Simulated scan of single mutants.
Amino acid sequence: MRITQGCFSFLPDLTDEQITSQLDYCLRNDWAIGIEFTDSPHPRNTYWDMWGNPMFDLRDAKGVMLELADCRQAHSDTYIRINAFDNTRGWETVRMSFLVNRPAVETKLAMSRAEAHGRSQVYGLQTSR
C-alpha cells in the first residue's frame, strides 16, 4: 500500500533534483518552507513533528536540502514532507505540501464500516505495519 498525501503523491518518489526544482519554484513565489516528519500518516493526523522552524528568510533551495538531509539522517524510517507557506493574505496558508521520504515498510491503513443505531454508519480506521 502506498500512502498518498499532498502534491505528487500518485507519482513515483521525487529525486533530490526534482525536489530542488519544486523548492526553487516555492522560493521564487516567496513562500516559506517547513519540514515535518511522522511515523503516523493517518489522514486526520495534521500535526506532524516539525524539523526546526519554518525557513522564512531562506532564498536558496540548497539550505532546505541541507536541512532535509539532516532530517532524513535522524528520521530515515518515517514519512517526511515539505510544506510551502504563503503569507500574502496576512496569515500563513499552505500552498504546497509533498512527501520527500517514506519508510522502508509503508503503514497499512484499513477502514471498517458498521451499522449503528438509527441506520447511521460508523467508520473506523486502523493502522499497522
Rank of each mutant, 00 (worst) to 15 (best):
L14E: 00
A32W: 00
Q121D: 13
L11T: 07
P41A: 06
M50D: 11
S9K: 04
Q121P: 01
G63I: 09
S40Q: 09
P103Q: 03
N29L: 11
R129K: 11
C7A: 14
M1P: 12
E92F: 07
G63D: 11
Q126C: 05
R59I: 10
N83F: 04
T107A: 13
D39N: 12
G124V: 07
L125C: 13
I3P: 02
Y79S: 06
L109W: 06
F56Y: 13
S21L: 09
I19T: 06
R81P: 04
N53W: 08
V105N: 11
L68H: 02
G63Y: 08
D57W: 12
P54Y: 04
Y25I: 06
W31D: 00
R81D: 11
V122H: 11
D16M: 00
T107P: 08
M50T: 11
S112C: 12
E106Y: 07
I33R: 01
D39R: 07
I82K: 04
L66R: 10
R2A: 14
Q22P: 00
H117I: 14
T38V: 09
T38M: 07
S120C: 12
D57L: 14
N83G: 09
Y47M: 12
D57G: 15
V64A: 09
D49F: 12
Q73Y: 07
I82S: 04
A110C: 13
N87Q: 13
W48Y: 10
N45I: 05
L11R: 11
T93G: 06
C7Q: 13
D60C: 06
H42D: 09
L68M: 04
S112E: 15
A61H: 07
R129E: 07
Q126P: 00
Y79G: 05
G118R: 13
T93V: 13
D30A: 08
W48I: 06
F8C: 10
T4A: 15
D13H: 02
E17T: 12
P41D: 04
E17K: 12
T127W: 00
D60Y: 11
S9I: 02
E17F: 00
I82W: 02
Q18W: 00
I3D: 07
I33N: 03
M55D: 05
R72N: 04
P43E: 08
L99S: 02
H75G: 05
S76K: 09
P103S: 05
R102W: 01
Q121R: 13
T38K: 04
T127N: 02
V64H: 01
Q22S: 00
Q18N: 05
A116T: 14
